[in-house]
Amino acid sequence: MDYLNAIVALTNFVLIPATAYGAQLALGALGVTLIYGILRFSNFAHGDTMAFGTMATIGATVVLQSWGVSFGPLPTALLALPFGIAATIGLVLLTDAGVYRFYRTQKAAPVIFVIVSMGVMFIMNGLVRILIGPDDRRFADGERFIISAREFKEMTGLREGLALKTTQGITIVVAVLVVAMLFYFLNRTRTGKSMRAYSDNEDLALLSGINPERVVMVTWMIVATLATIAGVLYGLDKSFKPFTYFQLLLPIFASAVVGGLGNPLGAIFGGFLIAYSEVLITYAWKKVLVYTLPDALEPTGLVQLLSTDYKFAVSFALLVIVLLFKPTGLFKGKSV
């Protein structure tokens, strides 16, 4: 029995990847939940908004690289991020003015907004594929590792390595910063409070002189920022492929719903819950068990509960269980 190696293996294969993935999901789910709280619909174009933001950032990265600009050990994409965010803000504000605002003035039913967002999804999806193509693309440069498995082994003398990729480190740091800023904004600033007020009680917000169009505009800008950051972090950590981003919709929705739609804290919790569940259930536990169990009980198979291809099933099962037993989510969400 060798608990130290078991802990290292668990950290390396489960905790670190799941934390990074959880942070990415949480940022995505925050965008979905803000749209739901303020505009009151489930935005099916969110995955494609993330894809667009990532694409714009990749574009800016390529330009920066061609000028010979680099960010030292960090990926150049971080420098390009503001351009990606600006482009995405532009796109969503245009979309809002050209598409959603019409239905807002009509006071259309939420389900109409959802269908409209399906149309927007098609357009953004097509746009991204036209502009950058449908292929898989890696755009991380700079140092690959903060600690590589080999360095760790040499440092500690343990049999198991522990690798922390630069992109994972960046994901966690950036996510913490972004979430802190978002909560400061929502809880401490006048505009942020007016957004919460509008989400809480639209009629009373109007009576208090809060301008709904301004609230909506600020919301879209924040959502575009969150979506771009989430998309870029995911792309740096794994890779960028438009279809994958579209598919991220399911775990992101699951995170937002499990946490309670409309509740930002819930979205973050949901993101990590979904990520940890996915990784824990699809991880092959053999290695960890070999270290922790007596030799006689050593497992023969991989001890993998579900094949990684079924990770969707994990988000989905959690979603259904939460909906059945707590329809407003684990944190109190809105139930419009």
Binding site: K193, S194, A197, N201, L204, S208, G209, I210
Partner: peptide, 25 residues
């Protein structure tokens, strides 16, 4: 100033934030 009969406060916000929102203009 108008106080509606129902839904006349922001339930998820603190008392002080409710007052602040009242003074939004």
């Amino acid at each position: 100033g108008f106080v509606p009969q129902t839904s006349n406060i922001f339930t998820s916000m603190t008392v002080e934030e409710n007052l602040e929102m009242g003074a939004f203009i």
